[in-house]
Write a protein that binds this DNA or RNA. Structure first.
Lengths: 152, 152
DNA sequence: CCACCAATTGCAAATCGTTTGCAACTAAAC
DNA sequence: GTTTAGTTGCAAACGATTTGCAATTGGTGG
């Protein structure tokens, strides 16, 4: 008996919401950018730039343009970067209002990804910060394992 | 009043202990390898290959040799890889008998590193594994913040 | 509707970390 | 010593990401 959506609030943002965010920052809403946002909107998984490129209709834009667009979106906080340790950065649209803080469980065989709600206990993190007199402490946490399909 | 060593057991392994491990695997104990092991022995921090290279007496060996040596040491479980998300892998000698599982608190300003004892609660990890029917679940966890010296 | 300008794009080339091919070299065993 | 599998240096290949630059374009003001 699985709940329909056990993850975070996942309502897809309107494309217009996203583009207006761009305009507000006096950035242009161009063909490549809308296309990239559309891809991200429809993929609730972290994607590499190359994967986004592959999803794009052939010749829509250059790979470099994607790197630049993603870079911009990340700077504006519209996209969050994830690192699964395989040498390629992955990006995911940040849900409206959310801080984009959550983690993943990645299959080491097929690279499948499940979003994880659990997070490192905030209190312990606070203790770590205090004990070491560090400020603005955050963490990067990802889980790895073998998914059901890859276990046979 | 700081305890002398608040980290894990940190007794330096003898170089001979390390080299014999190599011989046991029918690998050769060469100049470059001993030199690299010496560097690692004296640096209880994760080092990039390039940093190891810089520590080495000039011309001791090629950077490529370090990559290869580290690769071997990692395969033998003598060295553990860490990823601070800055594009360069870091390596640290695994304490004898230890599984090398611990984390770091990294300063985002100066890249200073503190070893962290706390770990993600094993029980919750088990729950995550069970709930998603994943096997052999582990995690990668690092903390980031601003160290005391960089706070002014 | 048009002109204007900063923002954007494509393409080629540069960077950076890491890996690989290969011929010359050497530690360790006999 | 001789032998040989394991190593090394050097050059080149690689994959991800960035940068320079000239050509293009979205959006604003008129």
């Amino acid at each position: 008996m699985k709940k329909p959506c056990q993850h975070h609030t996942h309502k897809k943002q309107e494309l217009s919401t996203l583009t207006s965010r761009l305009r507000r920052e006096s950035r242009k809403v161009t063909g490549p950018r809308s296309a990239i946002l559309e891809i991200l909107r429809h993929h609730p998984h972290p994607l590499t730039n190359k994967e986004i490129f592959a999803e794009l209709p052939a010749g829509e834009c250059d790979l470099v343009t994607i790197y630049r667009a993603i870079q911009l979106l990340e700077k504006l906080g519209m996209v969050k970067r994830f690192d699964f340790g395989d040498g390629a950065a992955r990006f995911e649209l940040v849900a409206e209002g959310a801080d984009g803080h959550y983690h993943h469980l990645v299959c080491t065989q097929c690279a499948g990804v499940v979003k994880i709600e659990e997070c490192f206990p905030a209190e312990i993190e606070r203790q770590i910060a205090t004990k070491n007199r560090f400020q603005a402490v955050t963490h990067r946490l990802e889980f790895f394992g073998v998914c059901p399909d890859c276990q046979k």
